[in-house]
Design a protein around this nucleic acid. Structure first.
Lengths: 147, 147
DNA sequence: CTACTTGCAAAGCCTTTGCAAACTA
DNA sequence: TAGTTTGCAAAGGCTTTGCAAGTAG
């Protein structure tokens, strides 16, 4: 789940299979999402897309993101202010948000995740289908900087 | 952290100590929050408060909640649609949200929480200050109901 | 009396929606 | 050609803000 080209093809296929049409705007947006290393929000994707297609609208970005989310090709991170999108790891996983540099770090290497889900299932008899796990704090790079 | 009267007094003290004024609206709102078993949102608190004080405004509810949050007397659960407030356990803890009955269940009895935070600190060298842990799925009561 | 709080209305933001025009297949 | 997608603008929903009037201390 990491090669941009694979991600791109995967998204494209899902859209085609659901009977969707492939427009140049969509192709470009899929590329942007597949290539993005970070966790852009709709506005950021829109800004980038706009450089190639000056007439594209923010609504189109939202609409396409909604499709990709439905196809589980993108994971939406629900934050207080807006949503950010993870196109590289399109499944629930923790995110660490640095309050200093505002960076969003993938926390998918936490080994306790499976056990955590299991404990919730067992202890509360709750069938977990989705999750939003966000940790706020200070990242490694910002930790040492005084102020 | 569970006796309504203690919670009420704690909130009241915090507000007083910060130089805040105790109005009848505020007292009533604190009582509502202290007594609430669930996780009301601002609109729900407003509706209840309105029954005692027909002239109260939603803005006042928001303003008071903001103060209580600042004083760590309430934990704000950031959900996609709105924020809900936990006045009984005013610290970060998981919440389980049933997609069938819409209930918000406290997940504070998960034993792995400490270890999870520790792993994030160690593995990512990330200083966790806050967290929003939300699990979506089907609760025990709704699990057996077909549909 | 002074400073804080309130209610109202308006503004802010992100996101969604309605619809005619444009376009893919 | 038929059915999707697009852009635009407006609407929606929650939350915040500005401000004059009211009120706690």
């Amino acid at each position: 789940m990491n090669d941009p080209e694979l991600r791109y093809q995967s998204m494209l296929t899902k859209l085609k299979n659901r009977g969707g049409r492939i427009t140049s705007h969509r192709m470009a947006l899929l590329r942007l999402i597949a290539v993005s290393e970070g966790h852009p929000n709709a506005a950021q994707l829109f800004e980038q897309l706009r450089q190639q297609f000056p007439t594209v609208s923010l609504a189109t970005v939202y609409k396409t993101l909604a499709l990709l989310k439905e196809e589980n090709e993108v994971f939406e991170i629900d934050l207080r202010d807006d949503s950010h999108y993870d196109g590289n790891k399109p499944y629930p996983h923790p995110h660490l948000i640095c309050r200093v540099c505002r960076q969003i770090i993938d926390g998918d290497e936490v080994s306790l995740l499976g056990a955590l889900n299991q404990e919730i299932r067992e202890r509360y008899q709750f069938q977990v289908q989705q999750s939003q796990l966000v940790f706020y704090g200070v990242c490694r790079d910002c930790r040492d900087i005084p102020g």
